[in-house]
Nucleic acid binder design. Sequence first.
DNA 1: AGGTAACCGAGACGGTACGTCCGGTCTTGGG
DNA 2: CCCAAGACCGGACGTACCGTCTCGGTTACCT
Lengths: 216, 216, 216, 216
Amino acid sequence: MAPTTQQPDAPGAGAAPARGKGRPRSAAADLAILDATRAALAELGWGGLTMGDVAVRAGVAKTTLYRRWPSKNELVVDAIAILFDQLECADLGSLQADIEAVVAQFADLLSRPETQAALLALFAEGTRDRQLQQRIRERIVEPQKVLVQLGRANAQARGEMGPDEDPATACEEIDIIFDTIAGTVEHRLLVSGEPITPEWIRRFTTLLLNAFPGLN
Amino acid sequence: MAPTTQQPDAPGAGAAPARGKGRPRSAAADLAILDATRAALAELGWGGLTMGDVAVRAGVAKTTLYRRWPSKNELVVDAIAILFDQLECADLGSLQADIEAVVAQFADLLSRPETQAALLALFAEGTRDRQLQQRIRERIVEPQKVLVQLGRANAQARGEMGPDEDPATACEEIDIIFDTIAGTVEHRLLVSGEPITPEWIRRFTTLLLNAFPGLN
Amino acid sequence: MAPTTQQPDAPGAGAAPARGKGRPRSAAADLAILDATRAALAELGWGGLTMGDVAVRAGVAKTTLYRRWPSKNELVVDAIAILFDQLECADLGSLQADIEAVVAQFADLLSRPETQAALLALFAEGTRDRQLQQRIRERIVEPQKVLVQLGRANAQARGEMGPDEDPATACEEIDIIFDTIAGTVEHRLLVSGEPITPEWIRRFTTLLLNAFPGLN
Amino acid sequence: MAPTTQQPDAPGAGAAPARGKGRPRSAAADLAILDATRAALAELGWGGLTMGDVAVRAGVAKTTLYRRWPSKNELVVDAIAILFDQLECADLGSLQADIEAVVAQFADLLSRPETQAALLALFAEGTRDRQLQQRIRERIVEPQKVLVQLGRANAQARGEMGPDEDPATACEEIDIIFDTIAGTVEHRLLVSGEPITPEWIRRFTTLLLNAFPGLN
DNA sequence: AGGTAACCGAGACGGTACGTCCGGTCTTGGG
DNA sequence: CCCAAGACCGGACGTACCGTCTCGGTTACCT
């Protein structure tokens, strides 16, 4: 048996780069591959996405792909996760404005063809593959949830909300808010297939604030 | 130009029973195929679903399958749609109870392995294939939305809500309520991967009723 | 269940038409089918020949084909055999002339695209299917061999040959002559792919007559 | 002869220097495939020969097969051609003996089930596909014709025949002799279905020598 | 400077599923 | 009993990708 079962691993994930002996991996290849993945995703959709095609687009051998990502799913998670890392929660002075900004950002992200093609497909795969679901949560879902936590903290700092009384209850509340925002936006955009306009965002945000009586 | 391109067409969908020429299609085969599809879906998931395997399970030739459904997507839509046709909206005497019942039904449906495996994958394909999206909406989404409309009508009959003032506004309101319920439940169950308990349903329903100030 | 396993049978083969109860078979269909078979053979070759296509060309249902011929092979044998039934052995006054005429006729037959496409393919199938080989011999090979026998009889009548001494020896001699003529013409035309000209026929006939010293 | 690494791919600019890039094709696979082809041919006949079956017998993927041979026809030509490459023309001291030896060799070859199954079927396909016919001639027919030329040269060396007077005439004579030998043996064995015994060979050879008066 | 270990491209490899086609059978309604 | 139409089962087709495996060659570190 091979003594070193060389696990393929995504580049940015590990902490120590394990400065080895041989030729180091091309850093440019990572970017090229992820870009190519998003491009192929936008152009062909999840079903049309092919490892061979990504390799060709990236000017890279298929071997290089598999050396870094164990399968299509993981590759796409990383390719899409980059987009979700760009989400930000600006403090605009009021909870209403902050929520609207977050929803707008999220809606923008879900309007990109590569995101549309990939997101639901990844979620679907995740229902079967627990490890993938974990990875999706870490790289894609968590960054969104952080926005909710940040917004909540900002609101508390501004005095719009009282401080958390019970951490467990607070965590549950964050979960339900998050599922509601993310789920509703995704459903309207990707399932119902209708656009998300500023008017819709305002309406939805108002409903959301109404739902929590503690907030005026 | 021929208006009916329908070479492969699902049974029951078309209005005209077509020409009475030739040997008629086996009605039993339809049921066997759809059952086999759901079974394979529950067992192997979307990615593991194979037309050949479905055919074998149904005791049917692959050609028979393709004669009726042009592709995996359409087949799965029909196989899953049957489940959504079973949704009902009982009048339990209060809006809160009615909503809770609907959410519970929907959560039950999404807890079935075949639904989990298929639903998000179908939605994902739908973002690329407009015709498929239309079909999904007709066969899967619409039956759910009808429940919201029914619940609303029941509430109005009971006097919990005032009558619709503007039909367009009412329609928009139904849309937003529907996207919120469906999206939130789906997101919690399939993306966040957390269970939907009666407590959660009660909390969520309460928030929902809070959100609409017209309802006490 | 049906007590009589109704064997499909070629139309012209049986003696008694078995004047039955129901609707009699369409006589026109037989001709149309055989014509269509030859046409398809000439156009598409053996490999491209399809029962469904023949049925369409003949304006007939596939069922009708199978009611009369048990399979593609038998159908083609009959379709081609018709052509071989047209071979004749005219008495032209000399053995040389008679042989040349027969060879020319045979070469003409083998130059037709439908014959080319079918003959070798049938022979090939015949090497595996003893029953088919028998049928081929009866319907296709025998009519050719009869010409050799006739030519021999004519030559004897004209005094160019002495009478048969031993029937067994005569039969062997006919066999070897026949295999030589048929085999050589087929090989030149279908394998070597070169044309058969009057010059070639004269040369070949001369060699043939040389080969048998009893003939001056 | 090696299968010439004939890519079924588009030839592109032509005369590509065949870059030594990538993993080289397995040489063992070629032999295994050709052996498997002959075995399947002998067992199942031309009609029963299946690319998938050959692949399984050879322990090879179907893709490997198609990567090397564009179709069943070409594969079988190569598989059978190997057998014809083994034909030899020994100088046994007299033309009669040499011819008898050649005929016997040829009859032996045609008695092998794989040859029987393949040869006529290939010839039949060759009548439709000019490229295939060319390939058959190069790989199968030509090796046989060489024997005739060699035998003739040997006879001239021994003084049994005078030297060629006109090259064109000589060539024509070789052609007619060859078509006669090959065609007659094939027809007796494969069409008439009768065995080729030493007695038959002696008779046939005698007739052949009679036919050419220049030979005593 | 030379090893050597890990990288890289290219592409062949064993598999699996695809969607199509055809052979031969059967089941309709109608003649 | 025949016919046309067409659905049915089974099975081979040739293609497309998957993920793995050799190849020859290329860096970069470590003696």
